[in-house]
């Protein structure tokens, strides 16, 4: 009898414990939801505000195809968006291969000794260094020491430095999340380390790596400080030479050494103008910048989707 009572009260105890934990779950879920709603609605409110303010210019096709001007209603973002896209191409071309290679090396090849530890600590800390510091580094190194001029290439290099830590860390996390059994199976079949990395680990880690790269590039696209530091222009009314031309050798890389400006700089320049019409331009430029970022994310999601469905 006593044991029965004991069992019943135990069961009741458990039931109340379960109920309490369930309530806690609901509470946490509700709290999470609330925070999410606040975050998203802040973003939406900002975006909507920019959109409504900038609408008159956003509807105007000339806005996308004109150079900056002293007349707000004629000023456009052509040099800025072209510059931003070119800089992002260079940044991606440099930072993704380097970052992924470094991540793979640190995770798969590097021995565990003090050197590796030192590199690890440095990489993690570099991710938190303010971007202006990278700008100063690039100014001293690329421009003053190497004698390069203020070009798309230098901007791509400095933004690459800025986002390398992000890509390295996310590559390592992605690789670490792959079950050890994959690797063991590959090695068991006689694959050497490179074959294992290339044929098994990289494909399995691809979604994580792509996410990391996009997070990095999304940060880079909005950066102003390091690009201003290396001397990006504010007013430029011509485009870099087109990469494809009718004459031999048909492809050229002149654009990489061209002077440039980028969207955030153009926006900043307009925000600080006294005339209210320039504020409309600035808002419209803000919307375009956000859409560019969202497009980059969309491309990443598409690639990830493709990769998953191929397997």
């Amino acid at each position: 009898m006593a044991t029965l009572n004991q069992t019943i009260s135990d069961a009741q105890g458990h039931a109340s414990l379960v109920r309490r934990n369930k309530n806690q779950d609901i509470l946490i879920a509700g709290l999470g939801m609330l925070i999410l709603v606040i975050a998203i609605s802040t973003l939406l409110a900002m975006f909507l505000d920019l959109f409504i303010t900038g609408l008159p210019r956003l509807q105007d096709p000339d806005f996308y195809m004109s150079f900056p001007s002293r007349k707000a209603e004629q000023a456009g973002i052509l040099s800025a968006w072209v510059g931003t896209i070119l800089v992002m191409i260079v940044t991606a071309a440099i930072s993704i291969p380097l970052g992924v290679a470094a991540g793979v090396y640190l995770e798969e090849y590097a021995g565990s000794n003090w050197m590796t530890d030192l590199i690890e600590i440095n990489v993690t800390n570099l991710a938190g260094v303010p971007s202006i510091v990278y700008g100063l580094l690039a100014l001293g190194l690329f421009i003053y020491a190497f004698g390069m001029s203020e070009t798309v290439l230098v901007a791509g290099l400095v933004l690459s430095l800025l986002i390398l830590p992000v890509i390295i860390v996310s590559t390592r996390e992605a690789i670490r999340s792959i079950p050890e059994a994959y690797k063991e199976a590959a090695i068991g079949l006689g694959a050497d380390q490179w074959q294992t990395t290339y044929a098994y680990i990289l494909p399995a880690a691809r979604p994580g790596i792509i996410t990391g790269a996009i997070v990095g590039l999304s940060r880079a696209i909005g950066e102003t400080a390091p690009i201003i530091t290396i001397g990006a222009l504010t007013y430029i009314a011509f485009l870099p030479n087109a990469p494809i031309s009718g004459d031999f050798p048909f492809i050229n890389f002149d654009w990489i050494t061209s002077p440039f400006t980028v969207m955030p700089i153009q926006m900043f320049s307009w925000v600080s103008r006294p005339q209210a019409e320039f504020q409309i331009n600035a808002a419209a430029a803000g919307v375009v910048l956000m859409v560019l970022t969202l497009m980059m994310n969309a491309i990443a999601i598409y690639i990830r989707y493709k990769v998953r469905h191929k397997d």
Binding site: S69, E150, T234, I236, A237
Partner: peptide, 20 residues
Amino acid sequence: EAVAEEFQKEMKGDIRVTVG
């Protein structure tokens, strides 16, 4: 910026101006 804009228009693209 204003002077550069007008100057470039008048030079018809023979001379380019960049302003930082």
